[in-house]
């Protein structure tokens, strides 16, 4: 027993029939039911005018349009809608890849060479001599002053260098004196 009447359970269908929301078979069954149910007959009879009034009222609103263009959507999205085919970008990508690989190669080469072991110390290198020195060493000059220079030049290469300790103890010029050989000057 119901304490509060909820009405006929088909009443909902009766209202929806007014809104054309029922199939043909359901509508037929509802009309048969409405022959014996005053509540559903009432809903079925008055559902149609409500539906008509609503359709008429909303008809004018259905004419409302907007002029918003799809370009504004693209602006709102912030990017171009078209997504390019990835294969179209392939040459550019591969070119860039080649550039990067060359850069990496050059960098590795530069870094690798900078870590090579140092060559022999510079003290063991043979003393380089200029061509003028080589030439002047071959023959002694005849002029006295030139001869003196020649002796000093030759001597400096042949005599051992004075060590720093000797220089500190004995002085910078306390080494073997240079012998000046007197050669007869040419007579005129």
């Amino acid at each position: 027993m119901r304490l509060f009447s909820r009405g006929c359970e088909s009443r909902q269908a009766a209202y929806l029939a007014g809104a054309d929301r029922l199939g043909a078979r359901e509508r037929l069954a509802l009309e048969v039911h409405a022959g014996s149910c005053t509540e559903c007959a009432d809903a079925l009879r008055n559902g149609r005018p409500v539906d008509t009034a609503l359709r008429g009222a909303f008809a004018s609103l259905r004419e409302r349009r907007t002029i918003v263009a799809p370009g504004r959507v693209r602006l709102a999205v912030g990017s171009v809608v078209a997504r390019p085919n990835p294969w179209e970008r392939a040459p550019r990508v591969f070119g860039r890849l080649a550039e990067v690989s060359v850069m990496v190669g050059v960098t590795l080469l530069a870094v690798g060479t900078s870590f090579e072991p140092p060559s022999a110390p510079s003290s063991s290198l043979p003393v380089t001599q200029t061509m003028a020195q080589e030439r002047s060493r071959g023959q002694a000059p005849l002029d006295e002053i030139d001869y003196l220079r020649w002796v000093r030049l030759v001597k400096s290469n042949d005599t051992p260098t004075v060590s720093t300790a000797t220089r500190l103890l004995m002085g910078a010029f306390d080494s073997d004196p240079v012998e000046i050989q007197k050669t007869p000057s040419p007579r005129f």
Partner: peptide
Amino acid sequence: LHYALRRLRTHLAAHPELGIEPP
């Protein structure tokens, strides 16, 4: 939808020009 249509019927029944009877 049923509830809305029923409520609307009740409201619109106050206007006889619409020809809608109250429930």
